[in-house]
Simulated scan of single mutants.
Amino acid sequence: MRIIYREDQEAREHVVLDPAAMFADKSEGRDRSTEPDILRNDFQRDRDKILHTKSFRRLSHKTQVFLAAEGDHFRTRLTHTLEVAQIARTIARALGLNEDLTEAISLGHDLGHTPFGHTGEEALARSIARHRGMSPDDPRVHLLYQHNVQSLRVVEVIENGGKGLNLTPEVRDGIVNHTGDLRAESMEGRIVATADRIAYVNHDIDDAIRAGILCESDLPASTHRVLGPDHSSRIERLVFDMVSTSADAGEIAMSPAVWDAMMELRRFLFERVYYAPVVVAEVGKATRLIDCLFDYYVSHMDDVPEEYRAISGGDDLRAVTDYIAGMTDRYAKTQFHSLFSPSSIGF
């Protein structure tokens, strides 16, 4: 048995990967130079750095969709992240792209999510707007807090005692450009952006069925015809279509019919799940909790941990935002209960 050193792995990439892949030994390099690792290439090191962060561990106690879900089988931000990594690695391997880079981006893409899912993200943006004197109807409010931008801040600034993780630019680019209409520079980053959609559309359906909000037969018949009759069939169809379409196109893509079916399911989720009474009932509570915590800490900056004040550059709103964004659901509730009457919000 022989040792496969970093140099061996880097050389092997040039043999087995597609020319369109991002090669570890061709990275643009870190902001702060470091000695190469004996066994791991730069993308493997980035993956491991992310895995060992406090922010990554906290994902296990951050909501995906169901804020007050009972039972052990509902997704959290951590299980969502792991499902994204699995789907993205499958696609990257099938296309001959860099699995290590794909995995590193996947594991880091949601580090900036707030407690209470997208509800917390929206509440935090509105709290920032209110303290800046902006109207809540201002179309720029949603730009004040974006989880992908905060994910980048986590790895560049917040972690490692304010020094950041010193990740490669390829990983950072994939993290910040994984959502909406943003487009990562690398093929691997573009895979993660679509794998994220594949994962949440399917597992949110699965969780909604578990919660009794939906049954499989409620899903649009047109999506069953295109994607298949159940959870496993849908993921298999979406992944294979993405692989085959991308291979033919020379770009990360899905066929129009399959993409449209996935987007139809996404719209269906907004109508039937994300705004379902059982979800909406908890949204108001979570929003008030975030509002109360934000107002309190802005007025009591000494209660904000020094580590966040030190990296804020004197911007109190920035320090409070970083602190609350990093909270888990249960820690945010604990802080609320320690500061205010628990009966005032009902959590």
Rank of each mutant, 00 (worst) to 15 (best):
P139N: 08
Y297V: 12
P169D: 03
F74R: 03
F294W: 06
R12Q: 06
T321G: 00
V226N: 03
Y331Q: 07
V192F: 08
I209W: 04
V141Q: 05
D37V: 02
G346M: 07
Q146C: 08
N160Y: 02
F294V: 10
A104R: 05
D291L: 03
T76P: 07
E28F: 04
R45F: 00
E236H: 09
V149T: 13
C215R: 15
C292P: 00
F336S: 09
L339P: 07
A104W: 01
L101E: 10
A310G: 05
L238R: 03
E307K: 15
V16M: 04
M1P: 07
I4M: 01
D137H: 09
H52G: 12
V273L: 10
G346L: 06
D42L: 07
G133P: 11
A195S: 14
T114W: 01
L82R: 12
L265Y: 00
Q150M: 14
R126N: 06
D291N: 11
A184S: 15
P136E: 10
H231F: 15
A249H: 07
I345N: 13
E236D: 15
V149A: 15
A332M: 03
M301R: 15
V84L: 05
P305R: 08
A69T: 08
V84W: 01
F43L: 07
D204G: 05
K333W: 11
A88F: 04
V157I: 15
T81S: 08
I205E: 00
I128S: 01
L101F: 02
S341V: 00
D260G: 04
S151G: 08
P229D: 15
N202Y: 02
T53M: 04
R272H: 13
H113V: 10
R210P: 02
D137F: 05
G112R: 03
N202T: 15
A104H: 02
A88P: 03
A123C: 02
D291Y: 14
R140L: 12
A276M: 03
A208G: 05
S135V: 10
E156K: 14
Y275Q: 14
H300Q: 09
V280W: 03
H73Q: 08
D137W: 00
R12K: 13
S217L: 12
R6F: 08
C215H: 11
T114H: 02
L289C: 14
L124P: 06
E185H: 13
L143H: 06
D316P: 05
V243Y: 09
L182Y: 00
G161D: 07
V239T: 14
R272S: 07
E236F: 02
G189A: 07
G162T: 08
H118V: 12
L152V: 06
N202P: 06
P19N: 02
R75S: 15
S127T: 09
E121C: 10
S246H: 13
